[in-house]
């Protein structure tokens, strides 16, 4: 499994280095990381698991079971998400994405970002690569934040489940309070970033997703 990864990584490298050769961007250094370096955190945690297994086997067994369940969930959800991401990247031209969600897209952009996020599936960490593609295509930062906000708190399938376990008044109230919060946060994040910060965000996304 890891052998395969290393091969495809090597193939990817030359094309990536052209990108990263230009400006000294924050994400650029990561491209040259070796496989070992990329999986360092994973390996450290694997060692921690071994230690836990020896020190407290009951917790270790439980942790492995939980991790396994999560990996299965990840493998179930991520393939279609990433296929959609690839199709989005190939088929939706930058100009269209900018027109729909970029600067000056106004209410239309907000609604599109909100819908895309609400209809999403999967854990929040799956939203970031999608957001990366959107950034690369020229989506406005505030709309990216709306998309991430919607993905995290107003996912429709999750809302239904929330209503059934915590009651519809809990769900509806949380939903009603969170919609303005998502907008407020998006606005605040965009306001808090300087022009250079924003440029850096786009560069980083470009380096990460290309």
């Amino acid at each position: 499994m890891k052998q395969d990864n290393s091969n495809s990584l090597e193939q990817n490298k030359p094309s990536r280095q052209i990108d990263s050769a230009k400006p000294p961007m924050p994400g650029a250094g990561k491209k040259k990381q070796s496989l070992l370096r990329r999986y360092a955190m994973f390996l450290i945690l694997a060692v921690v698991y071994v230690i836990v297994m020896i020190a407290a086997p009951d917790i270790g067994v439980k942790a492995i079971g939980l991790t396994w369940d999560n990996i299965l969930e990840m493998l179930l959800i991520l393939p279609p998400v990433f296929v959609l991401l690839g199709l989005l990247d190939v088929w939706v031209p930058r100009e269209v994405m900018i027109r729909l969600t970029g600067p000056g897209s106004g209410l239309k952009g907000i609604i599109i970002a909100l819908m895309l996020g609400s209809l999403a599936a999967g854990p929040l960490y799956a939203a970031f690569p999608v957001a990366g593609i959107m950034l690369k295509k020229g989506t406005k930062i505030s709309n990216i934040m709306i998309f991430v906000g919607a993905w995290s708190t107003t996912k429709i399938p999750l809302l239904l489940f929330e209503a059934s376990s915590l009651g519809s008044s809990f769900m509806l109230l949380r939903f009603a309070l969170n919609i303005p919060v998502i907008f407020l946060m998006a606005w605040l994040v965009e306001k808090s970033l300087s022009a250079e910060d924003i440029k850096a965000v786009y560069k980083q996304a470009e380096a990460e997703v290309s």
Binding site: F128, A131, V189, D197, A200, V201, Q204, A205
Partner: peptide
């Protein structure tokens, strides 16, 4: 951070 940068 990988996608949005540290600050954002």
């Amino acid at each position: 951070m990988k996608y949005f940068g540290k600050r954002a």
